[in-house]
Computed example of a mutant assay.
Amino acid sequence: MTENAKRIGIVILLFILVTLTWGTTWMAMKIAVATIPPIFATGLRFLAASPLLLLFSWLTKTPLLFPKGSRLFQLLICLAYFAGPFTLMIYGESYVSSGLASIIFANMPVAVLIVSILLLKERISPTQLLGLVLGVVSLSTILYLESSQTSGTSWQGIAALLAAVIIHAIMYVQCKKRSQKISVLTFNTLPCLGAGFLLLLLGSWVEKIDSAMFSTSSLISVGYLGIVAGVFGILCYFALQQRASAFQASLVFLVFPIIALGVERMVSGTTISQASLWLILPLLLGILLTLTPISTIRTVLRLEPVRT
């Protein structure tokens, strides 16, 4: 096997692992929040992930603190990247199906593009603008259809999930603006640990916590979210970003909602409406267009091989 073939094989394997991890995360959140309050469940999730992150940081001699001058930003990541958005995500799944939640979060590239335009004054191509409009219109229509046709869908849950996407997009753009080359372990370990303790304390204070009511399936789901999604998924996606182009790695956002919808049908026997399923096609096309660099589009139009 040549080195190039081996590299392609590793990229494909990582892509599959990431999409499977992200695709199953949504059903795990749905099961977890069934018997564990959302704030407390998110705190448990982060504390489940923290020991492994600390171990990997120790084994690789990775610093836990951000460089001097960026420590306040590290605290902001703890609050606005981990504690807030992840709690909003699992809270939203109290009112929204896991499949619809995954579709909302798949629009992260669209949200990042919008925030980049507003905060960084970033210029975009006409193709990206078309993708942005197509994505927003398709998602808005899906949300309208699901809220009006499905009794289990609430605007309360939709609003929480949209807020999580927007906050994550803002934090992503802020990280991009600062252009800090920080290890994935440094970025995740202490903020994850801090968010875990903070949310457990907050959950114990504002939520009615009765551990006797926690089901085994909910506890297993929390463990899965922390260890598999929170550690394994993050490291696999980081490895994918190192070995593939940014465009190739971003294609994960087109695949994991499909897996989430399939998992939802297998586990609960339900899915979104037929009309919404058809609207996923223009939605994913819109996301793809926002992700596609103009250089790639020009190469394809000239029928030249894409260089990665």
Rank of each mutant, 00 (worst) to 15 (best):
T141C: 11
E207D: 08
G9N: 13
R298D: 06
S138V: 07
L193F: 08
Y172L: 09
F86A: 03
L113V: 13
S217M: 12
G196I: 05
C236I: 08
T186S: 14
L88K: 02
I10T: 14
S57H: 00
W155L: 12
S94C: 11
I227A: 08
D210I: 07
L198G: 03
L52V: 10
Q180C: 00
H168R: 13
Q274W: 08
V222K: 06
A111I: 03
R178D: 11
L76K: 14
A80G: 13
L225F: 01
I10A: 13
G230Y: 09
P67M: 10
G9V: 09
S268I: 06
L59I: 14
V18L: 03
K68S: 13
S276E: 07
L14G: 10
I220C: 09
G194V: 01
T189S: 11
T60P: 05
L139I: 07
A101E: 05
G157I: 01
Y144I: 03
A28E: 00
G286P: 11
A244N: 01
K30C: 00
K208M: 05
Q149T: 13
T290E: 02
F73I: 03
L64E: 04
Q174I: 14
F256D: 01
E304A: 14
L198R: 02
P38N: 09
A106V: 06
R178H: 09
L202Q: 06
A160W: 04
V267I: 13
L53R: 11
L284V: 04
I182E: 02
S179V: 00
I294C: 04
Y81R: 00
T35I: 10
A49V: 08
P191N: 11
A163C: 03
R71L: 10
K68A: 12
T25E: 00
F46H: 09
W278V: 04
S221W: 02
I114N: 01
S276D: 03
M108S: 10
G269K: 10
S268N: 11
S179C: 08
S154E: 06
G23Q: 09
A83H: 07
V137M: 07
L289M: 14
R243K: 15
L284Y: 09
I104L: 07
S154L: 03
V136R: 07
G226V: 01
R71I: 13
P191D: 12
I280G: 03
L139P: 11
L53K: 10
L52R: 04
S125D: 04
L283H: 09
A49G: 03
M108R: 00
T127A: 14
D210E: 13
V173T: 11
I10K: 13
V306I: 15
C236S: 14
S179G: 05
M266L: 15
S217I: 06
T270V: 05
T270K: 13
L193N: 05
G194T: 06
F46V: 05
L198T: 08
K6F: 12
